[in-house]
């Protein structure tokens, strides 16, 4: 097990260098000059322009720029944003907010999605099953920004149950509304996934054996059916968690959540190379970590899966 984890972490190294190089190149190749943009509609002051380019190493060839960046990272320096803030600080300020939001959304997805899915699967073809189908189809076919605007208008502006936007503190109660919005789509998928998985597992031999042993229905459902049905769901949840962590740009924009998605979007618009690359790098690392944890979870859920001897 330890050996397996070590091997996976080693594999992450080339991925890390590959993605930073690739992303840095893409930012480098982006059309337009961010320093020109800093002057807005005003004319460009050539002297100031040259010096700012030198300050951000933009006058250097691509590989030299990348070298500056990567050596900086190994000294714990992620570069500086145009507003003079170390990118490390930006990362430290935004990621906790997004992680909190993602965890809340995933928790909602798990509780609501698996709960409804299990219930529907056990009562195949009944009213509850059918209405859950209608609900999931409705949620899947509605774009997330529509749900976001509707929820914001109804719950925040009309009913006043929550504030329309999230403040800097980004506390639990404030994040509840965006978290619910973020979770809606995944809830719908998880309901469908859990339902079909439960139906399939219910027909397995070991379930019949379990009933044959005289176990109560409650115990069979909990220990045998649910656990064995969860593998596809866990896969989906972990991918979704990864997606949420790298920022829900649209939702974060609508609720003004000071998280990863909103910040990254602004950095891209402003052409801030170091900020964009650092964010994406951290996202890649998170994705790799989440994937590793998911693989390890499989072993917990299914006794037939074993890692590294």
């Amino acid at each position: 097990m330890v050996g397996y984890i070590f091997k996976r972490v080693l594999q992450a190294l080339p991925v890390f260098f590959g993605t930073t190089l690739l992303i840095y190149f893409m930012v480098f190749a982006m059309p337009g000059d961010p320093i020109v943009a800093m002057f807005g509609d005003r004319g460009v002051n050539q002297a100031v322009y040259e010096q700012l380019r030198a300050q951000y190493h933009l006058d250097q060839p691509f590989l030299v720029q990348y070298f500056y960046y990567i050596t900086g990272i190994f000294q714990g320096d992620f570069g500086t944003s145009f507003s003079g803030q170390p990118v490390g600080d930006v990362l430290a300020a935004t990621f906790p907010v997004t992680i909190r939001l993602a965890l809340m959304a995933v928790t909602i997805e798990m509780l609501v999605g698996i709960g409804i899915g299990l219930f529907a699967g056990l009562r195949k073809g009944k009213l509850f099953d059918n209405s859950s189908l209608v609900m999931s189809l409705l949620l899947i076919s509605t774009p997330v920004f529509v749900i976001a605007f509707v929820f914001q208008f109804v719950f925040a502006i009309k009913l006043g149950w929550a504030k329309p936007t999230v403040s800097g503190a980004a506390g639990f109660t404030e994040l509840l509304l965006p978290a619910v919005v973020l979770s809606t789509l995944a809830v719908a998928y998880i309901v469908r996934l859990t339902r079909s998985s439960v139906i399939e597992t219910s027909g397995q031999d070991f379930v019949r054996t379990a009933y044959g042993k005289g176990l109560t229905r409650q115990r069979v459902v909990r220990v045998h059916i649910l656990r064995n049905s969860l593998i596809p769901v866990v896969t989906y949840l972990s991918i979704d968690f990864g997606v949420l962590l790298v920022g829900a740009t649209v939702t974060e924009g609508i609720f003004n959540v000071p998280g990863v998605g909103r910040t990254l979007y602004q950095a891209i618009i402003r052409g801030e190379g170091p900020t964009v690359v650092s964010f994406v790098t951290v996202m890649v690392l998170i994705y790799l970590a989440v994937n590793l944890i998911t693989d390890l979870l499989y072993a917990v859920l299914d006794p037939r899966i074993r890692y590294g001897k």
């Binding site: 059309p31 337009g32 020109v36 509609d41």
Partner: peptide, 10 residues
Amino acid sequence: AIALFSDFRT
């Protein structure tokens, strides 16, 4: 259309 403001100004 030119995609980005920075490109446009350049």
